[in-house]
Every structure is written in C-alpha cells, then in structure tokens.
Nucleic acid binder design. Structure first.
Length: 860
RNA sequence: GCUCAGGUGGCGGAAUGGUAGACGCUGAGGACUUAAAAUCCUUUGGCCGUAAGGCCGUGCGGGUUCGAGUCCCGCCCCGAGCACCA
C-alpha cells in the first residue's frame, strides 16, 4: 500500500505514512537481549502555549536521523519523548484565567504532540511521560525524600532573591544582572525559610565525573567554572587587644609578607565586636548602605572601591606586624571566610583599594621578566619575605602554610564557588514537597515510639524550623502517601508575604497525622471522636519544587514509564542503561545538566541505580536558528518562522532536510526561505527519478556506468560516516551529488534505486517510505537494513594528479595505472606543455610527489 | 578584564598540510510554453585576455613548509560564557 498520488504530493504522502507508523506501532520498542541497545535522548520540551518553535525540530530531527540510522544498523533503538510541563507560564495563565494549569498544560501538550507527529519523528509514543502527571511526580517526590533522609535536604533562613513581579523566590541562576531570567523583573534580597539541597557535598564528585564524559569542551568548562574549586589556605590573624581571630582565605600564601591590611565583608559577624568607638558611626553607615545596594551595584567592576576603617588592628602571623582592619564591599561574605588578607603589591583589587585610601604597598614577589610594575599578580621569586626569600611562589605556598600550621595559624583548605541548591518555589504549579511540619515535642514523642509509622525517610537529625516562637520538625511522608497531589483551587496568586498559593488552601494545609498508622486526615474532616494520643496536628509544607526537579531524572523514567513499584524497573534499566546520546540546547550547560548529574550520582551512591556514576556519556548541543535577517527570532522583530507554515507549504521532509542542510549542527545559522526551496526541489527531483508523469514507477537500468557506481558507493559510505559524525549538512550534499550523477546518467538501476532510498530514509522518511513501497517492498523502510558499500567500486581506475611548479598549479596529469612509479610520474609531468614552460632552462632543486595527489617541481 | 569558539564569493556553507569555494541559494543567458509557473541546459570569486592562459584572492602582519584556509607567533573584529571568587 502507498499513498498513490501522481505528482510529489507531500501532504498526502506524509499523512499516509504517519498514520501507517501509528497504526503499526513502528517505533515502539521492548527490551530485546538479542540486540545491542542504543538509547537516544532529546532534552524534552516545555509545552508552551505558542506551540513548537522552528528551533525544536533541529535537535529532534538530528536525534531522529541518528535513531533511524542506528535502527537500520541493527540496534534496538529507544527514542522517547515527554513533557517538562511544570513551570511559570502555565501558572501565569492560570492566574489570568482562573483555569487550572493542568487543563492548559494538557492542551499545550496535545498541540505539541500533534505538531511533532506531523514532522514524522520515530518516537516511541507509548513511553510518553509528563512531569506534572502524579504517577510521574510521585517518584520525583520519592527522590526528594531520599535526599531528605540522607541529610542532603535542609531548611535555612537565608537571603534569597525575591521577585515582586513574579511573586516568587528565584535561584541565583534565575537572576541575570539583577533581574529575573523570566519576565525581566527587578529582584531584591529577602530572608525566607527555604528548602536547600546540599549539592556542595557533591562538588568534588561532580568535578571528577566530568573527566569521564564525552561532552563539548565549553560545557565542561562552564561546569568546572561554576563549581569553581580553588586550592588555598585559611590564615588566622590575631586581633590586637582582642581574644578573637580573623580567618582569611587565600590562594596566595606565598604573598603573606606583603599583607598590609585586612578586609572584612560588610556582613562579617566580627565587625560589631571589633570596631573602635571612634569609627562606629561610619561603619554602621557603610554596612547599612551596602546592604541596600543590589548585587549589580556591588559587583560593578567599573566603580571605584569603597570601604571604612574599623580602627582595629590585626597581627600578621608571619612577621608580627600590626596592620589595619578595613571593611569593604568588594569582599564577598559568601566566598571563603568573608575576610581577606590584602596584598596590594600582588592583587589588582587590593592595589586599587590601597591606592584609594593611601595604604602601603609592599613588593614581595620578584617578577622573572624584570617588569617592576605593581600590582604584579603572577608567580615569581620571593623577596622581602625573611627566611623564605629566594623560593618560587609554588614552593613557598606549601612551606609557608606548613610553617604557620605548626603554631596553628594556618590550614590548607579548598574553596568552591558552588552554592547549595535553593529548592523551594512559592508557586502552585510544581511538585508539592512531601513534608508535614509538626511540633518538636510531637516529633520527639513520635520518633521514640516503637510503632512510629514515618520511619521510611526519617533523617538521623530532625530538620527543624522556628515559627512564632515555636519549633517545628519536618515529618517526611512515606512512599505509601505518594503522590502528594496538588489540591484544586481557583486562586493561584501567591500571598503577599511570599508564601505559595497552597498556604491559602486550608483544607489541604492543616492535617491530623496518626503517627502510628500513618493516616493523614484534613483537619476540616477530622472527627473529634477519633482523636487519640497518636494523633498530632500538622501543617503541610507549602513550597513546591523548582522546574529543574522533574528534568533531573526523566531519562530513567522512559525506561519503564508505567512502573508502579520503583522509579525505574530493574530489568529495564539493566538493559537500556543510561542514554548513549543526549542532545539539547547549550543554555542548559550548567543548571539542568549539573542538577541531573547530582541526582544521578546520589541515586547511584544509595544503590537505587547501578548503571555508572554519570547519566549522560555523550552530549551534543544543537545551534540556534536565527531569523532570516541574521538576528535572534522574536515576535518584536517579526522574523519568527512558524514550523506549521513551513510544513504546510513544503512538507515535513523538506523541513527536516532543510534544517539539517543549513550548516553544521552545533552552529548558529540563519533561516532562509529561498534555501528551503532548494531542498524542496531536491525532493521533487528524487520523486521524478522514480515516478513517471503518469504516476507509474519507472523502469530502471540493468546496470550503471562505472562512474555512477563509484558515486553511489561513495555516497553510501559518506552518508553513513557523516551520520555517525553528526555532519548532516555534508551527508545531504553528497546525496545531492549522487542524484545529480544519476540524473545525468539517465536514471538508477534496481540496486541503487533501493539503496538511495535507504540512506535517504533517516532524513526524509516519508518520501522514502512511499517510493520504497512503490518499488514493490512490503513493510516500512524503517526496518530495512543499512546498505553495504563496495570499497572496490570507490577506488577509481584512474588518477588525477596536480602538477605544480614552485607550489603553483600548472597542469593536471591523468594516469590510468594507479601504481605508476614515482619516477614515471615525474617524467610524465615534466613533459606537459604548460609545465615545460616553467621548468625550461631552470635548475630543478627538488621534486616532490605526494602519492596520487600532487607533483611539485621546485626550481630556482 | 578573563576563558572559549569563530572570521572563506552576493548569501548559507565545503575542503585527512596537497586543484580553495563542494553542495545549495541568488544573479545572468538559453530551451520548453500563447504566457506564466514548474522543469531542463549553460554560466556565476575579482582583475587581464577572443582564446590558450596569466595575475590576485580564505580578517591583518610575520613565520614554519616543496606546498598553509588548515600548523606557530603577534594584532584586529564578531559571538558565547564567566565576571571583585581573594
């Protein structure tokens, strides 16, 4: 069966085959131990109301080509798709309309799915997942509870980014230049009680794991920079006339003899204790001022560095010198110990500050190049450093810290830029955090009860939080309570004091917990006659999880999407393991990919999965498709290309082919409407090589010319290699070259007609299916094996050798015998008219022959 | 400022140190057609030349090499990421 049109009617053909694939479940897979598996993962989309963007099909087509190719090569290919559907836009839509976000989400998902099916991706839709589906987020909550149990989730009253525009707290990563990443609203600091995940405990593991993965270098580098590990030392400075010490972190202990002052961050806890009465007012003013400043203002590099004296002094532990202690906001409380030993001779920032306030600058490192300019920030040889003079920076670092260590005035240590992961969001449309807060006394009493039900995820140390003078402890739900679903409401607006909309839904919020039976009853429904000593009143956690949570582990869920007993079925993961290939945008280089690695390594550490420490062995980022004007597509610029319109006008095969033909997959490249007409023409040419004007399949040649056979075999080879190397643009141009040759030669023979369709199929599956069927084949071309090529046909029977004189091309030499000797080649070459001209009467200094390619005569 | 990636015709882009510009688009000319669309053929880096052929040419300046878009050094320009991280 086939669509049966006369001309290349892409609409009829594509719809016919899409229906065929659906009906026959062509792309559905099961574990099959007789075959090697290949797991291809796309970063799953957020199903926005705007529908598919023209950039989506780029990555999806790339992974689809690979999936279809690997299948043809005999692999059991898993290529699933799902929806990262929690998130702000659906919630804001709900705030505006009062319609539950799940309705809106379901709507958007169906649009996305329809669009993706219309492009013909070889996706196993039976494995479709959705992060907002309770059967999915049951396990997201379960993983959170594991983190909680293992002491990796805690609450902290910490300064967080509060965005008034979004009425929500944002993570550091969601704040760009003092404004929210989404919506571009201004943000301010605010103290709130938040859930935090201890990702910093995994800093070293996350760093170490990068060396074992095949990822783009830039992405690895970004993660390394984000983790920001540095090796250095804590050095302790005694405060003159005080019992206190100031701990400073430095990576340059070799410059300790050049310390001329200390600087504390304005938030440093010792400030109040050490400030001299005379300076109290100035200090107070300065500290208050810097608290008011936004981070943007504080970290503006262009501004001159400001600070105030404390009037207190510290003693340099290396030489006993008394130095001033200053406060300045160029020192960050969040890094190291929030205090630094300032070495203006060898640090740009300390130098700037010292210059502003007339503080002494001492040179303690000799620059090898003899440049005397200060500050000199490189390594060198120590001077003015007493017994350490003459040592290199490298040697001195260790020796000085060891020496100070003897008297407990220093310690070797490391520092990280990585902060713990703020995991709370004050939103409705996210996974509820499966925690109930109960009074500390109730918790203690319950925990010491042998019949305590809530042991499954109980941490060693209770997580507690004080509210209105009462201490509450976090009681973790058990697997049997999951999923904890979102209560219905029609008011999605967060409360003005920063709490999630869930805090307003009292029937859900307040519950009675039976700590012996595990029964949880809404307080409203609580029947007083059921009250007994094991019933305690609790308040549910109202924060929800960030959108990253659902995407941290989705690649595991595809393996057994309906599994009810575990996050992933053990047999399924034992077979499919982790993805062999992961493709998605570079915008997720740090956050998603770091968080997912963190969860994966955690799940590995607690034995939930045993498939290796890293989730994504091979990663690739597709580039961005720009508008026709070479700028980023945006509504305001009016340069947005709608994929539906492209499909309507040229078809899915043309869209797929064109996006792959545009240029290298990882590059940014502009869309061109004229360009897609080119590949559309190519598809029509293909059609016309198979089907005559009456719509009948053509008769092919009995055999092809040698020349054509060479091209066909080269094409099979190159297309295969190019797919493996993800060089789809050159694979397509090779197929064009092949078709041009076939066209010139007057058509295919039977063998090449079939082979050409097999290599075309991953790129343009619909037309390939249709023509494959019209050649008389049954079933889907998807199941046809990848063709073999004949290397002997690729080796040409004659060779074209370029003849150069002094490196300039002067002639071409064609030799019929590939094994012609070097001497004979020189003889033939030198006798060509246009070569003779240049070597005549000249002394030949050198003759070079690169076998089969070039002859070069070097003459005086 | 630091780190990384890149700079090739009118455009998107090809080129294991070996014919720079494959393939596609655009432009020009032609065939078919009453005409148009579609299709097909020729041509399309610049300059000189009727041609054969020659000279120049991969951001700029040097270098290595028989030979450089490709390797090395310095500079310029665009893009991305990080950005007072001590």
């Amino acid at each position: 069966m086939y669509a049966g049109c006369q001309q290349y009617d892409f609409d009829q053909i594509e719809l016919f085959w899409q229906k065929f694939w659906d009906k026959n479940k062509t792309f559905c897979v099961q574990e099959d131990t007789s075959k090697e598996k290949y797991y291809i993962l796309d970063m799953f989309p957020y199903p926005s109301g705007a529908g598919l963007h023209i950039g989506h099909p780029e990555g999806y087509t790339a992974s689809d080509i690979l999936a279809r190719y690997k299948h043809a090569k005999g692999y059991n290919v898993l290529h699933p798709m799902g929806w990262d559907a929690f998130g702000l836009p659906a919630e804001q839509h709900a705030i505006k309309t009062g319609i539950n976000p799940s309705t809106n989400t379901a709507n958007n998902v169906s649009i996305f799915k329809k669009q993706m099916k219309r492009i013909g991706f070889a996706i196993d839709w039976e494995r479709e997942i959705n992060t907002t589906d309770p059967i999915y987020f049951k396990w997201t909550q379960w993983i959170f509870l594991q983190l909680f149990k293992h002491g990796l989730a805690y609450v902290d009253e910490c300064p967080v980014w509060w965005c008034e525009g979004l009425k929500s707290v944002l993570a550091n990563e969601e704040v760009i230049g003092g404004r929210s990443e989404r919506g571009n609203f201004p943000v301010v600091r605010k103290n709130l009680c938040q859930w935090v995940l201890r990702i910093t405990r995994y800093a070293d593991k996350l760093l170490e794991g990068l060396s074992s993965v095949d990822w783009p270098d830039s992405t690895k580098r970004q993660q390394i920079a984000w983790i920001g590990k540095s090796e250095g030392a804590n050095i302790f400075f005694k405060i003159d006339g005080h019992g206190e010490e100031i701990c400073t972190y430095t990576t340059r202990p070799d410059t300790i003899f050049g310390v001329t002052f200390l600087v504390l961050a304005p938030e440093h806890p010792l400030i109040e204790k050490i400030v001299a009465p005379k300076f109290e007012n100035d200090v107070k003013k300065y500290v208050e001022n810097s608290r008011k400043k936004s981070d943007l203002e504080r970290t503006d590099l262009a501004k001159t560095k400001t600070g105030v004296q404390t009037g207190a002094h510290a003693i340099n532990p290396a030489n006993g010198k008394k130095i001033e202690i200053w406060i300045a906001d160029y020192v960050l409380a969040s890094h190291g110990s929030g205090a630094i030993m300032a070495v203006p001779g060898h640090d740009r920032r300390d130098y700037d500050f010292a210059s502003n306030y007339g503080i002494a600058v001492t040179k303690v490192i000799d620059n090898a190049s003899g440049d005397n300019q200060l500050p000199y920030v490189g390594d060198g040889v120590l001077i003015n450093s007493e017994r350490f003079n003459g040592l290199s920076s490298e040697e001195a670092k260790g020796k000085i810290v060891s020496w100070l260590q003897e008297t407990k005035r220093a310690d070797f240590t490391q520092n990280y830029k990585l902060r713990n992961w703020l995991f709370s969001r004050q939103r409705y449309w996210g996974e509820p955090i499966p925690i109930i807060w109960i009074k500390e006394n109730d918790y203690k009493a319950a925990a010491s009860n042998d019949k305590f039900y809530f042991k499954e995820f109980l941490p060693n140390e209770p997580i507690s939080n004080e509210k209105d003078g009462i201490t509450y402890c976090a009681l973790p739900l058990c697997t049997s309570h999951l999923p904890l679903t979102l209560p219905p409401t029609d008011n999605y607006l967060p409360s003005s004091d920063g709490e999630s909309p869930l805090a307003k839904i009292h029937s859900w919020l307040n519950v009675y917990v039976n700590v012996e039976t595990g029964q949880i009853v809404p307080a409203d429904d609580f029947n007083e006659k059921d009250r007994n000593s094991s019933c305690v009143l609790g308040r549910r956690e109202t924060n929800t999880m960030p959108q990253w949570a659902g995407s941290c582990w989705y690649y595991l869920r595809y393996l057994s999407p309906r599994c009810e007993t575990a996050i992933v079925d053990p047999d399924a993961i034992n077979y499919w393991q982790t993805p062999d290939f992961y493709i998605g945008g570079a915008e997720h280089a740090v956050l998603h990919l770091l968080y997912a690695r963190f969860w994966h390594r955690f799940l590995f550490d607690i034995g939930v999965i045993r498939t290796g420490k890293e989730p994504f062995k091979k990663l690739f980022h597709q580039g961005i498709i720009l508008g026709e004007d070479g700028t980023k597509m945006s509504k305001s610029r009016g340069n947005v290309i709608n994929p539906d319109e492209v499909v309507n006008r040229y078809g899915a095969d043309a869209l797929r082919l064109y996006e792959m033909f545009l240029g290298p997959l990882d590059m940014m490249k502009p869309w061109s409407t004229k360009g897609i007409e080119g590949v559309f023409r190519f598809l029509k040419k293909i059609w016309n090589e198979y089907i005559d004007r009456e719509g009948n399949t053509k008769n092919f040649h009995d055999n092809l010319s040698d020349e054509c056979q060479t091209v066909v075999n080269e094409t099979i080879k190159k297309v295969g290699n190019d797919i493996e190397g993800l060089k789809f643009n050159t694979a397509i141009s090779q197929m064009m070259i092949c078709l041009n040759s076939i066209q010139k030669a007057g058509g295919f023979d039977n063998a090449s007609a079939g082979n050409f369709l097999k290599i075309l199929a991953p790129f343009a599956p619909h037309i390939s299916e249709e023509l494959w069927a019209r050649l008389g084949n049954n079933g889907s071309i998807y199941d046809a094996p990848w063709p073999e090529y004949d290397d002997s046909k690729i080796v040409p029977t004659s060779q074209k050798i370029i003849v150069q004189v002094n490196g300039k091309m002067r002639a071409e030499l064609v030799v019929n015998d590939v094994n012609t000797s070097e001497g004979a080649i020189f003889e033939l070459a030198i006798n060509i008219e246009n070569v003779k001209k240049y070597v005549a009467n000249k002394k030949i200094l050198k003759k070079v022959y690169a076998k089969g390619t070039v002859v070069n005569f070097v003459v005086e």
